[in-house]
Design a protein around this nucleic acid. Structure first.
Lengths: 214, 214
DNA sequence: GTCTATATGATGATAGAC
DNA sequence: GTCTATCATCATATAGAC
C-alpha cells in the first residue's frame, strides 16, 4: 500500500490520529464558564454545550472536573510576560516608579482575553474552592509578586508585597468582577495613575513601620 | 379569664406561642456556614446540623434558601455603627484624617463576630451569586461609603470612593478570606497605619485627575 | 412546633455501542 | 473519536403524621 500523497494535501502518510481541535475547544469553553460562574456553578454539561461537544467527551479528554479546571487555569507564560514588562522599563525600577510599573503590568496583562478569563476564573473560584485558592496564591506570589518582591531589599518585603497584593486583588475584584462604578468604566491610564502611587508607597514608602523611606 | 400570675414566673397569661430559640439558632448557624462556604456550598442540611435542628424546620421558618440568605445577611445597625464611628472623632474629618478614620472603622467593625460573618459571607457569595453581589454593592455603597462620600465635596467623589472601596475590599479579601501572609497576621494597628494613608489619598489627595489636592 | 417520607431535579462520572 | 444511556449522589423543597 504505497499510496503517494497525490491530491491528498493534508496528510503525509495517512491521517494522523487525534487532534480534531475538540480538546482545545473544550479548554477554551471551560475557561469562559469558570470565569463567568466559578468552579461550582460551571457544570461539565454547560461547558460541553458552550464547546459544542458531548458532555462525555469532556470526561474522555480531561478525566474529571478538577483536572479540567487545573488544565484551564494553568498558563505557563505569565513569568515571561512579567519579566518582559520589567525589562521594558528598567529605569522605572531604579527611579522609584516600581508601583506605577506594577500597576501598568497588571492593566496590560489584562488586555489578553485568555489571561483575563483565567484570572477571573481563579478569583471567582478561590473563595469557595480550596484548590482554586491555593492556585491563586501561587499564581500571585510565585509569578507576579515573587519577581517584583525580589527587587526589594527591605527586611519587611513580604509584608509590603502582601499589602500591594491586597490592593491589586481589590482592584481586580472591584473593577472586573463586581464591576463597581465608576471604577469599572475608568480608562486603564486613569487607573494606573490612581493605583500606581499607592502601590509605590506600599512597596517602598513609609507604611508606619521602622523601615520606611519616610 | 382573669387568672393572676401566681407562681408561674415565665408567662403573664399562659404560654406564648412560638419563640423557642430555634429560629435564631438557625439564623446564627446559617451565617456561620454562609461565611465559611459561600452561598452555593452551604447546604440547608449542613445549616440544620450546625443549628442542631431538622432540615425541614429551616424551610418551615424561612421558606427557601434564598430567603434565609437574605435574612442572615441583613444587619440593620451598620449605619448606626458607622455614624457613631464618624461622630467619635469629628476632628478627623476636618483634619484630613478621613482615610485613617475609615481604616479604623473597618478594623473596628471587624471585631463584631456576627458582622464579620455577615461580611465574609457576602464576599464569598458575591462572586458566584448575583443576588449576593447586589447585596454587597448596597451594603458597601449605601452604608459605609455612602456616609463617607457625603462628607467629600469633590466633583469626582464617586470615583474616589470606588477607589477606596477597591482597597477595602482587597484588604478584606486578602487578610480575612484568602488569609495572605503576613498581612493576615498583622495587628489591626499596623494595618490601619499602612492602609489609612492610601485611603486618605484616594479620598482627598492627588489621584492624577484635575481635582487633586496636589 | 417538630420530624418522617418523599417528590423532583441537577450534578459528576462510567460503560459500552457505533 | 464520538455519543447514548445510565448510575449514584446530592440538592431544595413539600406534604402530612405526630
Amino acid at each position: 500500500m504505497n499510496e503517494p500523497d497525490g491530491g491528498n494535501r493534508r496528510s503525509r502518510r495517512g491521517r494522523r490520529p487525534g487532534e480534531s481541535g475538540t480538546r482545545n475547544a473544550i479548554l477554551a469553553a471551560s475557561r469562559k464558564r469558570f470565569a463567568e460562574q466559578g468552579y461550582d456553578n460551571a457544570s461539565i454539561r454547560d461547558i460541553a454545550v458552550a464547546a459544542g461537544v458531548d458532555p462525555a467527551l469532556v470526561h474522555h479528554y480531561y478525566g474529571s472536573k478538577e483536572s479540567l479546571f487545573i488544565a484551564a487555569m494553568r498558563l505557563p507564560n505569565i513569568p515571561g510576560l512579567v519579566g518582559k514588562a520589567l525589562e521594558s522599563d528598567p529605569e522605572a525600577l531604579a527611579e522609584g516608579r516600581l508601583g506605577e510599573l506594577l500597576a501598568r503590568t497588571v492593566v496590560m496583562i489584562w488586555e489578553d482575553k485568555t489571561l483575563q478569563r483565567t484570572a477571573i476564573g481563579l478569583l471567582r473560584s478561590a473563595l469557595t474552592h480550596e484548590r482554586a485558592a491555593a492556585m491563586l496564591r501561587d499564581f500571585v506570589r510565585s509569578t507576579i509578586f515573587g519577581q517584583i518582591a525580589s527587587t526589594l531589599r527591605s527586611p519587611d518585603a513580604e509584608y509590603r508585597v502582601s499589602l500591594a497584593a491586597s490592593q491589586v486583588i481589590g482592584l481586580l475584584m472591584a473593577r472586573y468582577v463586581l464591576r463597581v462604578e465608576p471604577l469599572a468604566s475608568a480608562s486603564g491610564q486613569e487607573v494606573v495613575r490612581a493605583i500606581g502611587p499607592a502601590l509605590q508607597r506600599y512597596l517602598a514608602g513609609d507604611i508606619g513601620t521602622d523601615s520606611g523611606t519616610a
